[in-house]
């Protein structure tokens, strides 16, 4: 499903080259729930971004569902992301001027679906995350846990095969975090989503099938 082969990534700060990942090789089979753990600055988010196609490796290849995403140009990569990947962020990253319904509808605006079809998809996604009664609410009218559930609905509304989550419980209290992880677990088991999740939270990592540790840019 996801084949990461020998990738390296470094960032340039002025004249300084800062290595972040070195020679990472990783296979994530379809339906896997993988948790990436490690200290701050270990390269977890960078690896997640590379798998999700929002950053590019300096060397190596990343193949998702048979597509080598490192070879796609920006435009094709954007299209690929919209079809194949759902994103869940630590701080939800909902657009504050849009309602829960409108936020979830965003990825569908790039498809050819009719307005009626979009409405059906959005309502289904919001009902799935338990927010069928909060569609017209703005993010500021929702709790942190509810905002994250809207973000999850936005991530799954296009029915992508891969979900990437960057510390999805990092900004939540224990109860809300537990609810989110139950939802993630359900998406993996019931809807067969392949999930790659970065987390610091051992309780969140417990839901994953596999936990890998990154330290100083190397995978253990």
């Amino acid at each position: 499903m996801i084949e990461v082969h020998n990738i390296s990534k470094s960032y340039r700060r002025d004249s300084l080259e800062i290595p972040v990942l070195s020679n990472i090789t990783l296979d994530v089979p379809e339906g896997e729930f993988l948790a990436l753990m490690g200290p701050s600055g270990s390269g977890k988010t960078t690896l997640l971004n590379l798998i999700a196609g929002i950053d590019r490796p300096n060397t190596g290849s990343i193949t998702v569902n048979g597509t080598d995403i490192a070879t796609l140009n920006e435009s094709n990569l954007a299209t690929w992301r919209s079809h194949n990947v759902g994103f869940i962020f630590q701080f939800y990253n909902l657009l504050p001027v849009l309602t829960a319904f409108e936020n979830v509808e965003l990825p569908l605006l790039l498809t050819n679906l009719s307005k009626k079809e979009r409405r059906e998809h959005v309502e289904a996604a919001l009902k799935l995350v338990g927010l069928g009664d909060r569609m017209k609410h703005y993010p500021k009218q929702l709790s942190g846990g509810q905002e994250q559930r809207v973000a999850i609905a936005r991530a799954i509304v296009t029915d992508p095969t891969v979900l990437v989550a960057d510390e999805p419980t990092g900004d939540l209290d224990r109860v809300s975090a537990g609810e989110i992880m139950v939802l993630m677990d359900r998406l993996n088991k019931e809807f067969k989503k392949t999930i790659v999740m970065v987390t610091h939270d051992p309780r969140a990592a417990e839901k994953a099938h596999k936990v890998m540790h990154l330290d100083k840019g190397e995978l253990n």
Binding site: A52, I54, S75, A78, T79, R81, S82, H83, F87, F89, N93, L95, L106, P107, L110, R154
Partner: peptide, 8 residues
């Protein structure tokens, strides 16, 4: 976020 989702 919009670019991540696929907006151009």
């Amino acid at each position: 976020v919009l670019k991540t989702i696929g907006f151009s």
